[in-house]
């Protein structure tokens, strides 16, 4: 039964994406992108990734959209998006898409419990989370402990973005002392 919901949601998502591609209004695209992210998060819930859904909702639909709006507020909203000639892009995306279809021939089916990805290390995580770490949320224990170093990197990435935006957009206090003429 879940499959039907999954099906319908994914179909909807694809429809959103195509709508965004075709939409000429920039503001509309930004709004649709917010919706798209929310929709994505729904799919994550269906696929059992509640933590990811949580994050995607907060980030994709929340922060990203607010940031895009903030940018639009500065650059102006009544922008029409122009497109360049579509032949080469279609060729590129077509090629990569074909490669991906080719790749899917040998993929394990979605949800296959015997797929290699679900057999190799994961049982250790699920067991270890209960015994070695003692936390029911396996995602948290993997995130914070087993692969805690990745998370450190992740925090560094967000910190980098903060530094970068500050550097680009931030305004320092006027330093009168360093400008004798001013």
């Amino acid at each position: 039964m879940e499959a039907i919901v999954d099906f319908a949601l994914l179909a909807g998502l694809a429809a959103w994406a195509v709508a965004i591609v075709r939409l000429r209004s920039l503001f509309g695209a930004a709004m649709l992108f917010g919706i798209y992210s929310l929709h994505c998060a729904l799919i994550f819930v269906v696929l059992d990734a509640v933590d990811v859904a949580f994050t995607e909702a907060a980030v994709g639909a929340g922060i990203s959209t607010v940031l895009i709006l903030g940018t639009l507020a500065i650059t102006g909203i009544k922008l029409e998006v122009r497109h360049t000639r579509a032949l080469i892009p279609l060729l590129i995306t077509g090629t990569i898409g074909a490669a991906l279809i080719y790749a899917s021939v040998d993929m394990p089916l979605v949800g296959d419990p015997n797929a290699p990805a679900n057999l190799h290390i994961v049982p250790d995580y699920i067991e270890g989370s209960a015994t070695e770490i003692g936390i029911p949320n396996v995602v948290t224990s993997v995130l914070a402990s087993y692969r805690g170093y990745d998370t450190l990197g992740e925090v560094t990435v967000i910190f980098t973005a903060g530094v970068g935006v500050l550097c680009l957009l931030g305004r320092g206090k006027p330093k009168r002392s360093r400008k004798p003429r001013g």
Partner: peptide, 29 residues
């Protein structure tokens, strides 16, 4: 492990919250 996870999650939380705010300050300002 409990203590460590608590602390680092706190670190993550602090950084993320304030980076978000600083992003907002930068764009809105």
């Amino acid at each position: 492990q409990h203590l460590g996870i608590l602390l680092i999650e706190l670190g993550v939380g602090i950084t993320v919250a304030f980076v978000m705010v600083s992003l907002f300050y930068a764009f809105a300002g």
